[in-house]
Amino acid sequence: MRLNFLVPLYAGPGPYASVYADTSRDIPDPDKAIEVHRRHARLDLIELGADPATADALADAVGTDADLPGRHGQALFATHGELVLTEELPQPPSTDRSSYALLPDVMPLALQHAPDIPYAAAVLTRAASQGIDIASQDLRVELQTGRWPSSVVAPRSVFRRRMPIHQWPHEAERLAGELAHLIDYGHADTLVLCGDDWARGVLVNRLPAPVRHRVATVAGNGQEVEPGRVMLEPQLAALFHGRISAHDRDRLEDFAAQRARHHAGSEGLPATVAALQRGRAHALLVNQPVEEWPPIRLGTAPDRITLSAPDLQSFGATGRHEQPADAALLHAAVTTGAELIVVPREETPLEDGIGVLLRY
């Protein structure tokens, strides 16, 4: 998973106020509940040492996602009185979480972007137009692309078209070409199809042979879509549960080969820190659930991170800021261009719950 979405967080110096809040709207009187979250966020940040302007800027943004229905949360970050980043979370935090530190608290947000699977979903539905015979039926096509699970709270536009059913074979030829293009350029790992059996078969038969194994069929009619939510949300949740993207799967295969040759330098917190120090980390691998690591010391440069004060002095670094390890590791990863791969512990257990794929 690429971490480009975190880049704006590091454009300026800290300290950063970070808040994770439940802003769900599937409860009685959600506005009253969100006001409580907002008030608690402001009080917590002031108690943690945040300046009033930063605490106000962040707390005032809690609940600004009121147009998003259903169950969800928000991750918000501010510094020096300015809101830097807000993102909606597919799953609300179990409890609200606030911090005020030199680095933003970004690991919970990064974890909610995983597995970051690109996909295209199509729902094909028959509808009678002038009669009940087949010749007079229409076919309704709805197509939406996204990245799972972020698309749950940030759905892209839905392409819709309705046509006489006899036109579908020709239209399916064109759509198959577009879907194959998405696969070829890495914009979709999976083509999710739902709806009419005949229409699905026509489309699949027109896909290039190498693309057909990317097709997944799900049940349902796809019509019960709440405004502001992603199409086929429950079906996608079941389909992608426990999976990782094709991009990350390739990286995992590279990591397995690397670990077989060079185990000591591939996993564990010391090996990961060492790789980041040298700018050699192509990707960090993190087991979920994430372990609690000891704090990391920071120098003035992003790659000046160590596990001890003497190591920091060996770099000639003047700063000695001690920060939570997850925040420091992601800061170093983002600013040195490394990726993040979140893997279930039972699938790929890692020493200290962390590993590193090296660049060279």
Rank of each mutant, 00 (worst) to 15 (best):
171 E>L: 09
175 L>E: 10
175 L>I: 10
175 L>T: 02
178 E>M: 12
179 L>W: 07
179 L>V: 03
188 A>I: 12
190 T>E: 09
190 T>D: 14
192 V>D: 05
194 C>F: 15
199 A>Y: 12
199 A>P: 14
202 V>S: 02
207 L>G: 01
212 R>F: 01
214 R>I: 03
214 R>W: 00
215 V>T: 09
217 T>E: 09
226 E>Y: 05
227 P>Y: 03
229 R>C: 03
230 V>S: 13
231 M>H: 01
234 P>A: 09
235 Q>P: 07
237 A>S: 06
238 A>C: 12
241 H>C: 09
241 H>Q: 14
243 R>E: 11
243 R>D: 08
243 R>P: 07
244 I>T: 15
244 I>M: 13
247 H>A: 15
247 H>D: 13
251 R>M: 12
252 L>I: 12
253 E>A: 04
253 E>P: 09
255 F>W: 15
257 A>Q: 12
257 A>E: 13
257 A>S: 09
258 Q>L: 02
258 Q>Y: 04
258 Q>W: 05
259 R>T: 11
261 R>A: 12
263 H>C: 10
264 A>N: 05
265 G>Q: 05
268 G>C: 04
269 L>V: 00
269 L>F: 01
270 P>Q: 01
271 A>C: 08
272 T>Y: 02
275 A>C: 00
279 G>C: 05
280 R>P: 02
